[in-house]
């Protein structure tokens, strides 16, 4: 049995997995472990130029591996290596198509969890305006987010494409991403206090949230499935939720008890007259069955 301790990044795992595979070390003889005392930021080694005599694997596997690598579950390296082994040494090249296989199922679950985490980061990051760069005239925004997995690098490209016209930083406990109009940069993680708490627009946003809510359709569980409570602390609108739920019954009661409004006659308007004429002309055209 050998123990392999790696910095928890995909490139590092790929390097070591290649070495082990070249030596024909079966998965049962390797214990993988994340390097302790992780600071969050790791130099990503580029191993692409060091292809040994390792058999080729489907690109779909590398895509899954790249995603699973940022999951926090310590077992991921071992399962990845076992699947790699089965594909290359176990004559199971078709393994990726077998969604019902236990290892594949596990990778799929991790992959989905990472995908969901990235999606939720794209959804729930809230930028706060902190100033303006006087020399470039560009607005500067800062956001705080706590991702479940180490997804900052995987999620950052989206923000670059979407918010190219402003300067921004997304701060997280793992790693921070920064955009200045020309380059995406990464720096080590920081503490919550480093990011601003408020934005002048938050009140307008809360007004919108309150107004778009329909009290006659209360579905709290549907909301929480998609927006779990763990995200609420960084969402300015979340403080309204309890009050909106509590007040909805009374609001609906009031609607149901409101006296019905009689129909008001049409005002004098040339356009309404023309509609009426069109309707009369078309009234012969009955409903299609």
């Amino acid at each position: 049995m050998r123990t392999v301790i790696i910095q928890p990044v995909f490139e590092e795992w790929r390097e070591r997995a290649r070495e082990l595979l070249a030596l024909h070390v079966p998965p049962g003889e390797v214990l993988w472990s994340d390097e302790p005392g992780e600071s969050g930021l790791f130099a990503s080694t580029d191993g692409s130029d060091r292809r040994g005599s390792v058999p080729k694997v489907p690109t779909a596997f590398l895509d899954i591996a790249r995603s699973v690598a940022v999951h926090r579950d310590p077992r991921r390296w071992g399962v990845l290596y076992r699947v790699l082994w089965r594909i290359t040494h176990g004559s199971e090249r078709h393994l990726l198509a077998v969604a019902t296989d236990a290892d594949m199922r596990q990778l799929t679950l991790w992959n989905k969890a990472v995908g969901r985490d990235i999606h939720k980061m794209h959804a729930f990051v809230r930028f706060r305006l902190v100033g303006k760069d006087e020399s470039t005239g560009r607005e500067q925004f800062v956001a705080w987010f706590e991702p479940e997995h180490r997804i900052v690098r995987l999620a950052a490209g989206f923000f670059e494409k979407r918010f190219a016209g402003m300067d921004w930083s997304i701060l997280t406990p793992d790693e921070c991403a920064h955009w200045n109009g020309s380059e995406l940069q990464f720096t080590p993680g920081v503490a919550r206090q480093a990011a601003p708490d408020e934005d002048a627009l938050d009140d307008l946003w809360r007004t919108y949230y309150r107004s778009i809510f329909n009290p006659a359709r209360l579905k709290v569980r549907a909301m929480q499935t998609e927006m779990p409570k763990k995200y609420w602390k960084n969402l300015p609108e979340a403080e309204l939720i309890a009050g909106l739920i509590a007040g909805s019954e009374e609001r609906v009661e009031r609607m149901l008890n409101t006296e019905e409004r009689p129909a008001r006659p049409a005002p004098k308007n040339a356009y309404l007259d023309s509609l009426r004429e069109m309707n009369e002309r078309e009234s012969s055209a009955a409903d299609e069955p």
Binding site: A123, F124, G165, F213, N214, R217
Partner: peptide, 19 residues
């Protein structure tokens, strides 16, 4: 400017009506 589209849309929040 800002903005991007394409791919799946994103729900940035949910109201207590589940929408």
């Amino acid at each position: 400017g800002v903005g991007s589209t394409g791919g799946a849309g994103i729900c940035h929040s949910y109201a207590p009506d589940g929408r």
